[in-house]
Amino acid sequence: MQTRQALIDYTLHLADNALILGHRNSEWTGHGPILEQDIALSNIALDLIGQARLFYQYAALLINKTPAADPTSPLNHGTAVTEDSLAYLRDAWDFKNCLLCEQTNGDWGKTVLRQFYFSAYQFYLYGEMQKGKDATLAAIAEKALKEVTYHLRWSSEWVIRLGDGTAESHARMEKAVGELSRLTAELFLPAQYERSLAEAGLAVDLLPLRSRWEQRVREVFEMATLSGGAGMLTGGKEGRHTEHLGYLLAEMQFLQRAYPGCEW
C-alpha cells in the first residue's frame, strides 16, 4: 500500500516535470527568435507534453486501482481519475515538479539553459529508468530517451553558441546561470517517495546520476566559456513551489476550471 502510494507520487512527479516544462516551452510558440527555432522549441514542448501524458495515464491507472485512502482528497469525487483531471484539476501544492521546470522563460538564453540543465538530467535519468523494475516506467523511459537525446544536443549547442558568442549573449548566459543553477541541486535530492522506491529498484537512484550530470555540464560550459554557479533551492518535489507555478496553473487550468468537462 505504501509502495503503491510512493509509486503514484513518483509517477506524478515525473509527469509534472514534463508537463510544466513543456507548458513553459509552449509559451514561446509564435514568439521564437526565428521561425526554425520557434518550431524546434515547440517540438520539444510537444515531446515533453507527450511524455507527461504517458506518465499521467499510468498514474491514473494506479490511482483508480487504489481503494480510496483519503475520502476528502480532491482526486476522489467517486469518478475515475484521468490524465486530464490530473493535469487540470490539481492545485500548486499537489504538483511535484522540480522548481527548475516552473521558472519563467526570461530571454532565449535563460530558456535554452533551463532546457539544457533539464535535458541533461532527463538523459541520465531515463537511461537508468529503462533498466528499472517497473515495466511501464521502463517502457516510457525507453521511448522518451530517444526524444531527450535530440533535446540535449539542441540545447547544448545553443548554450555554447550563446555563451561563446557576443559580449551581450555571453553576459546574458552568465546571468541565466546565476538565476538557474541554484535550482539544479533539487534534481538530485531524492524526495521521500524516491528514496523508498529506489531501495526496491522501482525508482532511479539519483545520487550516482549527479556526477555524470555535472561532468556533462562542465564540458558544455567549458566550450561555452561559462562559469559554474552553485547554491541550493529545493521543495518543488514535495509541493513547495516558487510563486511562478501558481500563475502558470492559473493560465493552463483556467478553461477546465471555468467550464468543467469542456471538450472541443
Partner: peptide, 13 residues
C-alpha cells in the same frame, strides 16, 4: 541542415 526540428516531430529541415 537548417534545423534539427521540422514541421512535425519526425522531420528535420
Amino acid at each position: 541542415m537548417i534545423s534539427e526540428f521540422g514541421s512535425t516531430a519526425c522531420k528535420a529541415l
